[in-house]
Design a protein around this nucleic acid. Structure first.
Lengths: 333, 333
DNA sequence: TAATATTGCGCAATCGTTTGTGCAATATAA
DNA sequence: TTATATTGCACAAACGATTGCGCAATATTA
């Protein structure tokens, strides 16, 4: 049922009906009697205005585009969760795009969403390129997780540097010196932040000789292969610092296959915690990214932009979740 | 930039420009010269038509609503993944709604999506009620995972009964007799299918005395508490059949706390496999639901409906993934 | 050359809302 | 009773596309 049909049935103009139903009765002096009639009839017919027509007229869609590399990765699934819930509270719906970690799809998603006139964009970019992102003028964008330092695109992310420092420090305090780091996607800010946190901490502790960074993307395969490489080294590291949940899975798999005891023979810390880490054996010690906070902050930042403000970027503090995958070792003299 | 502006710059009517850009130049006899000019200018300005206006005019949004109880549950996250990818291939985008397992939010999501005139709906319902679902006339709906037997709503799901039979059979063949089942949400078809598969198999093997179904929802807490209850029984079951991934996590947690060895002291099979099951110790034997197939089938079914056909409902066969959480036991004579 | 067919394009209505403005009818003031 | 204010509502123009139909201009045929 359309507004026009409703109006005809009431013998009124669409103007009047519309004004009542959008709560503008006072402003436009519609009599209470008329207003009540309209509301009654609207209820009877369960009238709901066509949002497409509204959007067109109001030049506003109340829709936010959410672009994510892989929604099946629990990290992003969690993010999507809070973002959706948070946006809904504020009257927006979300158009979801999964880019499958392909820059081309990211580009395509972007223009599809622009075509649909979303009010704003929440993007967890692949991170390899960002030319297409900065070429979008008049639309508020908030980057999540991965971001770009040289650009003035707003972002919300974990303090990756800090998280890596905490993890590395912890390992060093437990007596580890030969600590390897398995990294994710090169040239992405989170990865670089984490790697520099690791390097800096190693350096500060006089362990520069032991700095070892290996790996190339955020995948199980990378964790698996990289671990195998590490294990074939003349001096096998006593601890591994893995830079995301997928890599950690690969590490665990490789260690299991080699029947190496964790943490007896090799200790492990994972950047990016997951609920099931508790159930692994041993339960994994991890740096937990505050997903709900990130989601909420991203939405809040986006709304600031929508209101024309210039919100600051945010680097949220990670949490250290100590479980049992790190054992102390005695240093060789 | 709008079509009108583009047309003005070309000194043509919007009619002509529109016809060229929608590929109708032949049909409406636009000369090649004109068409080329239009395309060139469109490219220069990177013109993209306003989809909102298009949607209104064409009475079609190329948008599908996806309603899901909890996108942070990897089961649904995986589903969302394939659904999104599959829909995108076919030129549709997805509006995502997370209902947080609240029927009220499901109802709300439904009307929001209807208001936005989505072309179709893909719903993984909470499953407690479905009155609001059948009250939606003129829109194609495909239910996923949970469905309703008495209604003529299309659905795609795993063959839950079969999966449960396979699991129970496997346990029985390994010599187990005292097999407990921890169920999920009552009165939902998948749960009932799984429970009946379990019961039927127990019955067929003369183990009716051992039938024990406990639990009440798909949560870690439920798995945890139910397991504790089972462990306090005079005759502790030798095997547990857990009806989804969250419950399985709770079971594992409880068993760990009680320092019960799996599968030495208690065997476990989980309905609903997850990648990390491989990394648990022991790796969990599980009934795997074919998520990609389900997603693809759901989208295919939806498109059949959109084309006015009457596709059959689908119950897809689950896979049995044998790992190491089930041990054979010797029966008491 | 005149009659007809074809080519090439534009007019204007339409999709379903919202909203600035105008105009009666009634109420109030003088 | 007349002049002015107020109340209550509707007209019609947007928003930005698509499309049935019509109408010139040119090409073809007789």
């Amino acid at each position: 049922m359309t507004l026009k049909e409703l109006a005809e049935e009431l013998n009124m103009s669409t103007t009047t009906v519309s004004r009542v139903l959008t709560g503008q009765e006072k402003k436009y002096r519609i009599s209470d009697k008329t207003a009540d009639k309209v509301r009654a009839m609207a209820k009877v017919h369960q009238f709901a205005p066509n949002q497409i027509a509204r959007n067109l007229r109001l030049q506003k869609t109340n829709t936010i585009g959410l672009i994510i590399p892989d929604i099946s990765n629990p990290f992003f699934a969690n993010l999507a969760r809070t973002v959706e819930v948070e946006l809904r509270k504020r009257g927006k719906m979300v158009l979801l795009c999964d880019t499958k970690d392909e820059t081309e799809l990211e580009r395509e998603s972007l223009s599809l969403l622009m075509g649909r006139k979303v009010d704003g964009l929440l993007i967890a970019p692949i991170g390899k390129e960002h030319h297409h992102l900065i070429q979008q003028p008049e639309i508020p964008i908030v980057l999540i997780d991965r971001y770009f330092e040289d650009q003035d695109l707003s972002f919300v992310t974990t303090d990756n540097f800090l998280g890596a420092c905490i993890a590395t420090d912890f390992l060093i305090e437990k007596g580890h010196r030969n600590i390897a780091c398995i990294q994710g996607l090169l040239k992405t800010t989170p990865n670089e932040g984490r790697v520099s946190g690791y390097k800096k901490t190693m350096l500060d502790n006089g362990l520069s000789d032991y700095i070892k960074v290996i790996g190339e993307d955020y995948s199980i395969a990378n964790g698996y292969e990289s671990t195998k490489t590490l294990l074939s080294l003349p001096e096998v590291p006593t601890a591994i610092f893995s830079l995301n949940n997928q890599i950690s899975m690969g590490v665990m798999k490789a260690l299991k296959e080699h029947r190496l005891e964790v943490p007896g023979e090799v200790s492990l810390i994972s950047f990016d915690d997951q609920p099931y880490f508790d159930l692994l054996s041993p339960p994994l010690t991890a740096i937990k990214q505050p997903m709900s906070e990130i989601g909420r902050a991203a939405v809040a930042t986006l709304f600031e932009l929508l209101e024309g403000n210039h919100p600051p970027n945010q680097m949220l503090k990670p949490l250290f979740v100590e479980r049992s995958s790190v054992a102390p070792i005695y240093q060789k003299p």
